[in-house]
């Protein structure tokens, strides 16, 4: 029994390390700001902003659009990256680029679809946790049954 618990503790540690690395990646490479945060704080450098696309237009071949909102000031985006099919009305996108506070325009050079992190986490938790519990339950039962059989001395009396 002791070996079983030690082995499973090791597995939990390995799973936690991979989970931690995945979380780090989400925080640093996937998480995006809201248009409100960019409009109010104007963060410098390359940032990621998420929102729903509306009013897609073309300004001399360069796609422009804004994020759907109910705010007074619209969050306008100008996309200068390679052609992308994902720029469509009502599609939820993450744009990567720089905010120009003087022009009040976001220049994006990369776009990504909505990350839907909650769904990914749910799917992995359902699959990995249930597998671990199912297997742990079986292993624990086998260990208990071996102990029980030893105590009952089945082989000696049978």
């Amino acid at each position: 029994m002791k070996r079983l618990y030690l082995r499973w503790s090791g597995l939990v540690v390995v799973a936690a390390v991979i989970g931690g690395m995945a979380m780090w990646r989400v925080c640093h490479e996937v998480a995006a700001l809201t248009p409100e945060a960019v409009l109010s704080q104007a963060p410098p450098g390359e940032i990621r902003v998420a929102g729903r696309v509306v009013e897609v237009a073309s300004d001399r071949g360069v796609p422009t659009f804004r994020f759907m909102d109910e705010r007074v000031e619209p969050f306008r985006v100008r996309y200068t990256g390679p052609p992308d099919d994902n720029i469509r009305e009502l599609k939820y996108l993450v744009v990567v680029g720089q905010w120009n506070p003087t022009e009040r325009l976001f220049s994006a050079d990369k776009i990504f679809p909505n990350p839907n992190i909650g769904f990914i986490v749910s799917a992995y938790l359902v699959a990995c946790l249930s597998s671990a519990l199912f297997l742990f339950g079986m292993e624990q039962k086998v260990a208990r049954l071996y102990t029980l059989i030893k105590e009952e001395k089945i082989y000696q009396t049978g």
Partner: peptide, 26 residues
């Protein structure tokens, strides 16, 4: 272990589905 690491950390997102395509690996 390397499969899970690659699936969650290093593989790139899908062009149309984005990050959610990672559910495929499970």
């Amino acid at each position: 272990v390397p499969g899970l690491y690659k699936a969650l950390v290093t593989s790139s997102p899908d062009y149309y589905q984005g990050e959610v395509a990672r559910i495929m690996y499970i």
